[in-house]
Design a protein around this nucleic acid. Sequence first.
DNA 1: AAACATATCCGGTAGAGTCGAAAGACTTCT
DNA 2: AGAAGTCTTTCGACTCTACCGGATATGTTT
Lengths: 250, 250
Amino acid sequence: MGRTSNRSVERAFALVDELAENGGGRVSELAERVDMPVSTAHDHLQTLVETGYVRMEDKEYQTTTRFLEVGHRQRHRLEVFKAVRDELETVAEETGEHATLFVEEADQAVILAVQEGSDAVNLFAYPGARMPLHAVAPGKAMLASMPTDRVEEIIDRHGLVELTSRTITNPDVLFDQLEEIRGQGYAVDEGERIAGMVCIAAPIFDKNDRVRGAICVCGPQSRIDETRRDEIADVVQRAANVTQVNLDYV
Amino acid sequence: MGRTSNRSVERAFALVDELAENGGGRVSELAERVDMPVSTAHDHLQTLVETGYVRMEDKEYQTTTRFLEVGHRQRHRLEVFKAVRDELETVAEETGEHATLFVEEADQAVILAVQEGSDAVNLFAYPGARMPLHAVAPGKAMLASMPTDRVEEIIDRHGLVELTSRTITNPDVLFDQLEEIRGQGYAVDEGERIAGMVCIAAPIFDKNDRVRGAICVCGPQSRIDETRRDEIADVVQRAANVTQVNLDYV
DNA sequence: AAACATATCCGGTAGAGTCGAAAGACTTCT
DNA sequence: AGAAGTCTTTCGACTCTACCGGATATGTTT
């Protein structure tokens, strides 16, 4: 092949994506959903079952726990994750709010770890959850730490999608804020992704001053007023610094 | 195709498996590891990158956080998971030990959720971790709740692999224990998977009396003596019952 | 600057994936 | 119960595409 990618593999993953996004289904239904002849979908699902990434339960195909396993293994190999582990717990305790570790992947902000009583509580904050960089504090913290042309590239490619009425959609406004974030060392968002939710995040740098992630604290607006905001900003910045130090010893 | 499965897809997943098991690598190295011509490996990796399941970081290919995402989405769709969520937290609090939710998948015991201060603490207990059914309390709890011929099938297919000196390797001993477990309503293992670790688990049934999973509490032998063992058994059994009730309302 | 290692590109060909059609399982309706 | 309908699985022929050796490009080391 070469310049074009492998069709079979593409189609197999189209099925996986479909199962992941819209849940399990029967052969004919899935074939319909991904727009594929039934026999072809059947063949692929058969192969996927053999690989162990898909299974058949109650006459419906669905993804297996192998995805969780692969995801967790990868996570344990990531230096930022290892470097931040204990810190995240501390942050959650000190603030009493959700503490999360974000990284950037494929121009998006992705949650790597969540710390709080139950990791299942928040439907919007689970490991692997991804969102536009410009719409969340940790994303902005990371953008602020990237070279400007990189930021422009990202805006060009994906635009500034509006998630709530408060999402930043104007590049100039965004660049102003990134400047501000660089100055103060942390980023804030107020309902820019989810209405009523405030997030405060600090970037994590490695020894070469490249951003490796961001530590974020989120909570309902009602619980996080001006003064608490400053407290939390201190906590996340301190945690980010400790993480940076840990990073060198990993 | 038909009776034989799709080679391209198989090979793509061989690469994914390799990345997951032994970590990232360069094209030529990976090609070597999965025994594939370099150009072919290159083509597949290219396709995988396009699907978003693999990425290139620091000149090494590695799996992306998409696996975490897919895994978590699937988990949220599983009824047992939704039914057990709050209970698991309660169990962890009441016992002060790790509480985990297990399910059976592909003849193995798989961890679906872990509850305890930090979900990252235990390298052996993370969502997606899989292990032989006969070597852990939750596995035995689930085996005890299956029809005998199903259990025999599993033993035939996989044998009774020895993980520690205390692992049950004799089918007769196993069947005796399963009988006992059915009688008392919970299962115990003492260092049968990991030396020095005690686990106590109760099976979760649905309204049709089919096992859907098991709730498990694990801790170091030193901390769990005879009397605590009974206490914990009560806690996990109660939690399993509550979960069963929840299951009907999901 | 040359020598080496590794990644990427290219193109012909064998062989594999694709898909229509037919057969086989299940369900549902009468 | 039997039949009609729906969905899944099997089959085979044709076509397309995945495959891989070799050439080129990129990057690294001496």
